[in-house]
Nucleic acid binder design. Sequence first.
RNA 1: CGGGGAUUGGCGCAGUUGGCUAGCGCGCGCCGUUUGGGACGGUGAGGCCCCGGGUUCGAGUCCCGGAUCCCCGACCA
Length: 408
Amino acid sequence: MKQSQLFTKTLKNVPKDETSINAQYLIRAGYIDKLMAGVYSFLPLGRIVMKKIEDIVREEINEIDGQEILMPALHPKSNWQKTGRWDEMDDILYKLEDTSDRQFTLGPTHEEIVVPLVQQYISSYKDLPFAVYQFQTKFRKELRPKAGLLRGREFLMKDLYSFHTNETDLNDYYEKAMEAYSKIFSRVGLRDVTHLTYASGGAFSKYSHEYQAVSESGEDIIYVCQNCQLAINKEIKDETPSCPECKGNEFQEESAIEVGNIFKLQTKYSEPFGLHYDDDMSKSHDVIMGCYGIGLSRLMGTIVEIYHDEKGIAWPEEVAPFKFHLINLNNNSVQSDEVYDSLQKAGFAVLYDDRELSAGKKLQDADLIGLPYRLVVGSKSDGKVEYKPRSSDEVELLPLNEMIKKHA
RNA sequence: CGGGGAUUGGCGCAGUUGGCUAGCGCGCGCCGUUUGGGACGGUGAGGCCCCGGGUUCGAGUCCCGGAUCCCCGACCA
């Protein structure tokens, strides 16, 4: 991609109504734009990052036999009345009506939709187990949206729902989901900061599990076991004095961002909708459920909160919108065009700064945008390329083919 | 939902006791000179001063009401 053609450009000033690091850098670098509090547009660079995160999540969820679907964002009132949440969740539901006074809500989550949906296809134990998931925009009337992508009124979420005949089967799947989640958070670069965290479980199980990424911008307080790295959410700390995993009792208090949550729903939603199956004796039972969420837009914000320095973003390679940032500092573009073509032919994603701007401006922009590897072609390159990882200060002068080999 | 702050070209800001043609920096257009860490000179375009009332000869500025945004707190299956 030629940067001269890229829709959006960098800003020197930050809009003053943003104070969070993720929003400041993402706006200044041209990844997102704010429409109103807690509601953002994703511009080309931001959309690519979001797709990369989405692809990682999709791969890992497919790996545990999740089947991708897409449910509506607009929900009829009746589904929400059935579970009682039309009134219970009144303060966060965006309710609306049409010209015939029919009432709707924009979906903040999808239990009320997925359960009646799958009900049409489940009659026997032979139909179970299975799991479906989607990437969906969720709507929640947050009293106070804040911190850029970390708490929005509208946000992108992956929600997975699993259906089982018995609790053992649910537990098995739950374990598999945990493994998938670990892989996902590792792949997006959050392996070292994300802790599996015990949190309150609600009516049917003792605990739920959250995935908490340690960051000063986090709204949650967790206690990380110094022995096994498992964590406990502050909300259950008093009733859980020792680590549920290793029984250790030395903890480090940390602020953290909740980037994922998994939950054993048991029959909480199958009951109100009458989601049953018949066993091999033709006896009817409630279907057992689990649900598993990841906030993708929040995850993107979290990555920026963790991967940045005073100059800008420094994306982990797997989620960066491009791998290389090629910068031409020559008066002509003969050599840089050649480098660009070669890299394209070798199959690399390259952002090529072909703009007629001062060297300083281009180098500053590269740091702000934060692609993993910077390649400079200029008077000092001597026919080679100046290669520098974003997170390093050392520049290597390499022949192009050697540089390509390094990344083969 | 309580407390605090804010709203003036795309972005960041100034605007005096109410006064004349609403300024500055960045960005943008054009011309020229420049290119290794946000270049320089010249020149030009761009304004619902958040919205609605009111006071006044006169309101960006004062008064009343409202909206939106940010921060702190409460809330967050």
